[in-house]
Nucleic acid binder design. Structure first.
Lengths: 209, 209
DNA sequence: TAGCGATGCGGACCGACAGTCCGCTTGTGC
DNA sequence: GCACAAGCGGACTGTCGGTCCGCATCGCTA
C-alpha cells in the first residue's frame, strides 16, 4: 500500500526541470543560500528574517535567490526538504516500527514520535514554513505526511474517516502548537510526546463501543 | 472551579481604559469599521484584505482604524470577540451539557461541537485571526479556551498532562485545519465533528491500561 | 447659545519588504 | 579561444502595515 508512492514529495525547486545541467557556480550559490537561510532562521526568529537579509548573508543578489526558489515559501520548503525526505524514507521503507513490518498502531506511534523530533530539531524553520505556506497551495509536504497517516489509520480502524482524523492529528502535531508548548510553555519534548500519544489512544484502540 | 474566571477574555480594545466616555461619532465609526471588515473578509478571502481596503470601505481614514484597533491582529480579534464571548458565556455559565452540571466528558464533547460550529460560521475571519496573531502574543482568546479545556481534562483524567493535551486538542480543532478540511477537502461539518470526537475518545475514556 | 478644551479624524507620509527586470558576467561546450 | 547560453546582481516597483500631526467635531459648562 505504501509502495504506491515511491516519491510523493517531488523536488522542491523551480522549473529547472529538463535542462542541460546545473552550472557549477549555480549549485555553489544554492548551497550558500540554504546555509545562510538556515543560519538566519535559527539565529533570529521566523518572521524576523527577510528575503533581502538571506540574500545578503549568502552574498548573492536577490535575483539569484528568487530565481532559485521562486518565493519565500519555496525557500523554506527547500530547507525542510532534506530532513523531510529522510523521515519519509524512514516511514516508507525503513526498519520497523517506523517502517513497514510493525502493526499500524506501533507505526503510528513511531510516526508521531519521529515527526515531533523532526519538528523540534528545527522549530523556527518549521514555523516559518508553516506561515509561508499559503492556504491552499504548497501542501506537498503536508500531503505526503497526511497520506501516510491516513493509510495507517484506515488499517487500524476502518470505521473512522481516516482522511479527516489524519488532518486533525497533523493539526495537533504542528509546528505552531509545538512552538507554543516548547518555547512559551517551556514543556519538554517527552511531555509533549506523551500528550500526543494520549490523544492517539482514542483512534489506535478501536472503539470499545 | 470555573467561577474563578468571570471574564478571562478582557475587552479587545486599545488603551481606551479609564476614560470619560466614548464619543458618539467614535462609536459609530467603530461599528462601521467592524461591519466593513466583516463584509470584506467574507467576500474576498483572509489575506486578500488590506487595512487600507477596510478603512476605505468603512469610509474612514486609516488613522481612525488604527487608533481604534491598534493593528491588524487587534481588528480581527475584535471581530471574533462577540461570538467568542457568547460561546464563553455558554461554557462558563450556560446550561448543560456545555455549561456546568454535566459530566466533564459530555461537556468536552459539547465544547468541541460548539467550537467547531463557531469557527465554521466565520471561517475566513477565524483564519485571518489565526494568521494575524503573532506567535507569543495576542493569545487572549486561545488562552481562555485552553484554560477551560485544561480544567475539564484534569477532572476527567488526573494522570494526563492537561495543559499539553489541551493545546494539542485546540491545535487539531483550529481554523486552519477546519478550513483545509471544509474548503479544500470539501468535507461537511458533521464529518469533521465525528473525527474530532473520535480523537477525543483517547482522553475522555481514562486509560484502559 | 456661545465658548472652549478634550477627543477623535483623515490621509499624507514612512520604512520595509516581496518579487521583477534587464544589462552584464561567467561558465561551458566546441 | 570563441560564442552563446546560463546565471548573476541589485536597482526598481508596487503594496502594505503602521505613524503623525494639523484640523474638525463633540459635548460640557456657563
Amino acid at each position: 500500500m505504501t509502495g504506491m508512492c515511491p516519491d510523493p514529495i517531488p523536488r522542491a525547486e523551480l522549473p529547472l526541470a529538463g535542462q542541460r545541467r546545473e552550472r557549477g557556480d549555480a549549485s555553489a550559490n544554492r548551497e550558500r543560500i540554504l546555509a545562510a537561510a538556515r543560519e538566519l532562521l535559527a539565529t533570529r526568529g521566523a518572521g524576523e528574517t527577510s528575503m533581502d537579509a538571506v540574500a545578503c548573508a549568502a552574498g548573492v543578489g536577490k535575483g539569484t535567490l528568487f530565481r532559485r526558489f521562486g518565493d519565500r515559501a519555496g525557500l523554506t520548503e527547500a530547507l525542510l526538504d532534506e530532513s523531510m525526505r529522510s523521515f519519509q524514507d524512514g516511514f516508507l521503507s525503513g526498519p520497523p516500527p517506523l517502517g513497514p513490518g510493525a502493526p499500524p498502531c506501533e507505526r503510528l506511534e513511531a510516526f508521531v514520535d519521529g515527526l515531533l523530533e523532526l519538528l523540534d530539531a528545527q522549530l523556527d524553520l518549521a514555523v516559518a514554513a508553516d506561515r509561508a505556506a499559503v492556504l491552499g497551495s504548497r501542501m506537498r509536504i503536508h500531503g505526503a505526511l497526511a497520506l501516510h497517516v491516513r493509510t495507517l489509520l484506515a488499517e487500524l480502524d476502518p470505521t473512522i474517516d481516516a482522511e479527516v482524523v489524519a488532518d486533525l492529528l497533523l493539526g495537533a502535531i504542528s509546528a505552531g502548537v509545538l512552538h507554543h508548548l516548547r518555547r512559551e510553555r517551556g514543556r519538554d519534548l517527552a511531555t509533549v510526546r506523551d500528550g500526543a500519544l494520549a490523544l492517539l489512544r482514542g483512534v489506535s484502540q478501536p472503539a470499545s463501543a
